[in-house]
Design a protein around this nucleic acid. Structure first.
Length: 576
DNA sequence: GCCGTTTTCGGCCCGACTGTTTTCAGTCG
């Protein structure tokens, strides 16, 4: 039997989790070794199955022992060591690690001294007031754990929230703190700044000469439901939705190092700190130090430069090879918002779910600085939102008229075709070729087997009218997983046909994923970064799409809509 | 468990806050 890449990653993640528990600390070197191997493999593009032990140990973070475990897992389907750990720490006990405030040390003590093995037995021990008998524990600890248990499942330590649900809140909170007296700047950091599609909690760093004012403001925010902790420079609280927010105040002179530290990721930070150590320095949120002397601290640019690296944009800071690349001046020229020349997935109220008129959408596009835009209203197969042939042809006339009226922008008559369960598309082949540009996307039948989904998408992209595949999996972050398909097969299809992979900037979609985008780069597939706007206020999604693409290491030379319209037209023509 | 332009052994990122303690361990990020 051969284990898939995903299964191997999951196995290593479980090994890391259980080893941390067994060793009594997530900082345990063994646990971190598993995490390092996990990161190394995630950054390793190729297949894993079939690799020899020697080849496996060439992967960063994978040594003899982990290579053997991967081989064992690949051939037998399990790992003896993992089975032992599972027996020692059954799921009910592991569940307890999700309780905020309960770490491995405390959990071990609870089990050894009080026989606590799961949530129920923990509750019994709490009711009997037995925890306070233990060293280091008291009445307050009992109360804290009791409260944490009550809201377990609502927001355990490992709960991730879709970015779309917190993005607005985080920025409005930062804006509010930014207006306080003494505050120079307030910025959401952490996974929000790295632009991860899900986030654990909200981290806001405030540059201020007067941290007391900031801490007071935070303690009295209307969003605050429960105060978790508050000190002179740091306050943590839960919102009414159960989201944890950490606000940290630093002196403006230390803002760069604070931003760097609180943006993470953890893996990225550790790598930077290691670089500092290699130079005999120390890097913390307060700055880069040589003994007592500050080497750099005011801006992130200063810090990277001092460490002998190119500046690393936040979306890249995931420990996926960016540290090595930046140190060797090998960071790719990533796509940037100012490179974008147009939007190739764009709706008007011709679509049933469109909310702004053609004129409004054209003017919004001009306002955004675009040189061209493709209107891609839904085809007839989406019965509620789509348009008939007659409607589409009338629509085309209006687009041509507007194209004449607005010489500063080129308007394309396009369509968002619906990919049926069998890969079929709207209209007929001849009519489809009437369009200047077509994006084809999945809108239903999300549960078909992966093999069928792959055939479905491959069939759609083989149609000469199709120029891009929209929101590849149809996922909604945190709500709908999206279709399963053979990504490599699809990428190969895209590469051979010259059809582009869309990176959809809608915050709840962010589809294709950053991971797929990166594989697309390796496979020689071009992308289009689109907003899929249905309203003039959705054009901001281009910022999101670009940052998401950066997470996928998408380079400017591979983005179709960073090129002149003539090149896009030529590409469409060449395909027919 | 991994790793080596000082090392095949002895290291492995750094600091705030809490609760329980009089100096610190545990947890978290």
């Amino acid at each position: 039997m051969a284990a898939s890449r995903t299964e191997i990653l999951r196995m290593l993640a479980e090994m890391a989790r259980l080893t941390a528990l067994d060793e009594g600390s997530p900082q345990s070197f063994k646990a971190r070794a598993y995490e390092a191997a996990l990161a190394g493999i995630e950054g390793h593009p190729g297949e894993l199955t079939g690799l020899s032990k020697t080849e496996l140990t060439k992967i960063k973070g994978v040594g003899n022992s982990i290579a053997e475990k991967i081989l064992e897992f690949d051939t037998t389907g399990t790992v003896r060591k993992l089975e032992e750990l599972r027996a020692k720490y059954p799921p009910g006990f592991v569940e307890l690690t999700r309780v905020p405030g309960l770490g491995p040390k405390t959990l071990k003590m609870l089990r050894d001294r009080l026989g606590v093995v799961d949530v129920d037995s923990l509750k019994e021990a709490l009711d009997a007031e037995r925890l306070r008998e233990l060293p280091g524990m008291g009445e307050k600890s009992e109360e804290k754990i009791r409260r944490a248990l009550e809201r377990l499942g609502m927001h355990g330590k490992d709960r991730r929230t879709p970015l779309v649900e917190v993005y607005g809140l985080a920025h409005s909170l930062a804006a509010r703190l930014g207006d306080l007296p003494g505050v120079v700047e307030a910025v959401p950091c952490g996974s929000i700044r790295r632009f991860s599609d899900t986030i654990g909690d909200v981290d806001i760093v405030v540059a201020t000469t007067d941290p007391v004012v900031v801490m007071n403001e935070v303690a009295n925010l209307p969003h605050l439901s429960e105060l978790i902790g508050s000190g002179e420079t740091k306050t943590s609280f839960l919102t009414h939705e159960g989201l944890q927010v950490d606000v940290r105040a630093v002196h403006p002179d230390q803002f760069g190092s604070a931003l760097l530290y609180f943006t993470g990721s953890k893996v990225h930070n550790i790598a930077l700190r290691q670089r500092a150590i290699d130079r005999g320095w120390l890097l913390s949120e307060y700055g880069l130090f040589e003994e007592e002397k500050v080497v750099a601290s005011v801006t992130e640019e200063d810090l990277y430069a001092a460490l002998g690296m190119e500046y690393v944009p936040p979306p890249l800071r995931e420990g996926r090879g960016e540290v090595e690349a930046a140190a060797g001046d090998r960071l790719p020229r990533l796509i940037r918002r100012e490179d974008i020349a147009g939007d190739m997935h764009y709706h008007s109220d011709r679509s049933g779910d469109g909310r702004s008129s053609l004129e409004e959408m054209v003017e919004a596009a001009i306002e955004a600085g675009y040189r061209y835009v493709a209107f891609t209203d839904h085809g007839e197969d989406l019965t509620i939102n789509g348009s008939s042939r007659e409607e589409m042809l009338a629509h085309r006339d209006r687009i041509r008229q507007l194209d004449d009226r607005y010489p500063e922008i080129d308007l394309l008559f396009g369509c968002e075709l619906n990919i049926g369960p069998d890969g079929s598309l709207d209209y007929d082949p001849g009519f489809r070729l009437e369009f200047d540009w077509c994006v084809a996307s999945i809108h239903s039948h999300f549960d078909l087997p992966a093999e069928q989904q792959t055939i479905r998408v491959l069939k759609a992209l083989s149609d000469p009218a199709v120029n891009a595949i929209g929101h590849l999996t149809g996922r909604y972050v945190g709500r709908r997983p999206g279709v399963e398909l053979d990504v490599d097969a699809v990428l190969e299809g895209l590469a051979t046909t010259g059809v582009a992979l869309e990176i959809n900037g809608a915050l709840d979609r962010l589809d294709a994923t950053d991971e797929v985008a990166r594989r697309a780069m390796a496979a020689g597939v071009d992308v289009v970064i689109d907003t899929d706007s249905h309203h003039t206020r959705e054009l901001i999604r281009m910022d999101y799409g670009v940052r998401w693409a950066q997470r996928g290491w998408v380079t400017v030379d591979r983005v179709l809509n960073a090129r002149p319209i003539e090149e896009i037209r030529a590409r469409v023509a060449a395909r027919r």
